[in-house]
Each structure stands twice: as C-alpha cells, then as structure tokens.
C-alpha cells in the first residue's frame, strides 16, 4: 500500500501540489487524470524521489520513503518519452536495472528473456533501441520497468506517443500485464477515455488537489464538482439553471446521454454536430444557453429539436449535493 500524506510541492512561487493525501492499495491500477500542466508528472517525480517534496510524506508498506533517494525506493518508472538508453541494445536496456543490482550474468539473461517473451519482443533483443518503432520502444520501456519486480510502478503517459490504433492495442495489453503481475500501477494521463478504460480507481488532479477520487463509473455518474463533470466524459456535462425543472436555488447538471429526443419539454436549434459511431452529438441553442444532447439519425444545422431531461444531478456553488 502506498500512502500519500499531505504532499506539497512548489516550483518557485507556483504551488503545483497543494496537500494531496490518498491511499493506493496493493495490486491496484490507480490512474491520475488531469489536464496538461496540472502537475501529474510532478506528482510522479515526487513519488519517485526525482523531485524533493516541500512537505508531506510518502509511506510504502508501512515504511517511510520520503527521504530516500530514487535508487533506494525500489520502484520502476516509465517516462512519456520512454527514456531508453540510446547507447545500448534492447537487451542491455532491460538488463540495466538488474546490472545495477549486481545480479549475475546468467540470471540477468534468464530474467530479461522471460520479460521479453511476456511483451513479445524476443526478436528485438539485439536491436539498437534507436532503430525500433515507437510501439516497440514503449514495450522495451515497460519491460525494463517490470524486469526487476519492484514494489510498484509509475507510468507517465506511456501511451501518448503512439498512434491511435497502436495505443488502443497497447491499452489492453497494459491491463493484461498488470493483472498478470498483480502489480501496483500508478498511471498518469490527460486522456479521460484512457483513464476510464484502464483504471480501478481514478484521481482527478485539479489546482494542486485531488478533486475527486473514485471508480470510473462513479466519476461519470456522480461528479463531485462541475469541473469534474465537464472534464470526464466524451462530451462535457451540461449545466443549466434549476428553474428549467422547477427546482429553486441550484444548478442542474445532465450528460448529453441523459436526454430523450422528441419529447416536448425543451426546444432548441441545432448549431453544429459531431458524429461518434452511430450516435450524433448535437450542439443546441436552448433559451440562450448552449446544450449538448445525444441523438441518432440525420440532422441539419438549423433544425428544431425537442427533448426531455431523463436524469440529472443537482449542484450548489459548483458542488454536487446529490448522494448516490
């Protein structure tokens, strides 16, 4: 178990982590989700010991590692740009952490080959790491991370440099590897879709705090704040005055998926639209407010659309007031 206690990190005047506390269970796939510049990489660097904390502490399996240098923390990290050692072959890259541990040659060879097999890169072991494709580099980086069986793994947007198709494949594989190893993964991404599909739990990082931590469905169904509601989901949650539904003093939030078309409660004009598979998301102007609704079939700009809100959450001062 990793316990983060009141982590605070500043760069000069800029407060990047503003008192973050959370417990990450052993064997959990824990995703930190946040927009670019939110401090996700900083968070991992602090856990890895590359950057020093201003205050707070990190306890792993009951042992305080806050003051330990990175090489003593027994963790593995995969960087966004993979950080492969360009002067070494694939084999030597994967073998490096074992070598640093002073492991014997035969043992290293056996371990490296086993991991290479797990990731399907046996054929590449002799290649130079600068001469293989992005997807292959990413596997090498993961192989290097898992080869020494650390107590947990930190992954900083490891899939973001891959093309869409490879990324999709790699996602599934990553999940499989994690299950097979039973490892604790702390995984950083700015892609909410990736987070939803990989995570056991997601922590949404915003303005130096975890704004909400929960299982993917919970974040989707019960966003704790308006900000989370807008950030999670393929399209942001809609927020309108409670008076639409006759509720006083609150805002109501509803997802584009939570409406039914061709019901006469509300009427809007199609401003623009976007197709996703079989569905079409319509951007409507309703009573001077912009609303996104999900529909299906064919629409044109200027069409009049009617709909009803089937499900909604109530927010006050930006915070959710409904309980699940």
């Amino acid at each position: 178990m990793i316990e983060l206690k009141e982590l605070v990190k500043r760069y000069g005047q800029k407060l990047v982590l503003n008192g973050i506390s959370e417990k990450i269970e052993t064997g959990e796939f824990f995703v930190i989700l946040g927009p670019s510049g939110a401090g996700k990489s900083t968070m991992l660097k602090v856990i890895a010991g590359i950057e020093e904390l201003d205050s707070g502490s990190i306890v792993v399996d009951g042992k305080d590692i806050t003051r330990l240098p990175p090489e003593k923390r027994n963790l593995a990290m995969v960087f966004q740009n993979y950080a492969l050692y360009p002067n070494m072959t694939v084999f030597d890259n994967i073998a490096f952490p074992l070598k640093m541990k002073g492991m014997g040659k035969d043992k290293i060879k056996e371990r490296v080959e086993r991991v290479a097999k797990l990731l399907g890169i046996q054929e590449l072991l002799k290649s130079n790491v600068t001469r293989i494709s992005g997807g292959q580099q990413q596997r090498v980086a993961i192989a290097r991370a898992i080869v020494r069986e650390p107590s947990f793994y930190l992954l900083d947007e490891p899939l973001s440099n891959l093309d869409a198709r490879t990324r999709f494949k790699a996602r599934g594989e990553l999940k499989r590897i994690q299950k097979e190893l039973g490892g604790t993964f702390v995984y950083v991404t700015h892609d909410q879709k990736e987070a939803m599909s990989l995570a056991d739990r997601i922590a949404v990082l915003h303005e130096g705090k975890f704004e909400q931590v929960g299982v993917p469905m919970e974040l989707y169904e019960y966003p704790k704040t308006k900000w989370v509601g807008e950030f999670i989901g393929d399209f942001p949650m809609n927020f309108v005055s409670g008076e639409w539904l006759g509720v006083q003093g609150v805002e109501i939030g509803f997802r584009p998926e939570w409406v039914k078309l061709d019901r006469s409660d509300f009427k809007g004009t199609v401003n623009s639209m976007e197709s996703v598979g079989e569905s079409t998301y319509l951007f409507l102007d309703v009573k001077d407010v912009k609303v996104i609704v999900k529909g299906s079939g064919h629409f044109d700009v200027g069409d009049e659309v009617t709909f009803s809100i089937e499900k909604y959450r109530r927010f006050k001062d930006g915070f959710l007031i409904d309980q699940k």
Partner: peptide, 13 residues
C-alpha cells in the same frame, strides 16, 4: 533528455 538520467537513478545507478 533529463528523463534518461532520472530513469538511470530509478534503475539504481
């Protein structure tokens, strides 16, 4: 890249 150095440190160098 500085990540390479971080990586080496994490790898125990």
């Amino acid at each position: 890249p500085k990540e390479v150095e971080y990586q080496a440190r994490i790898d125990g160098a």
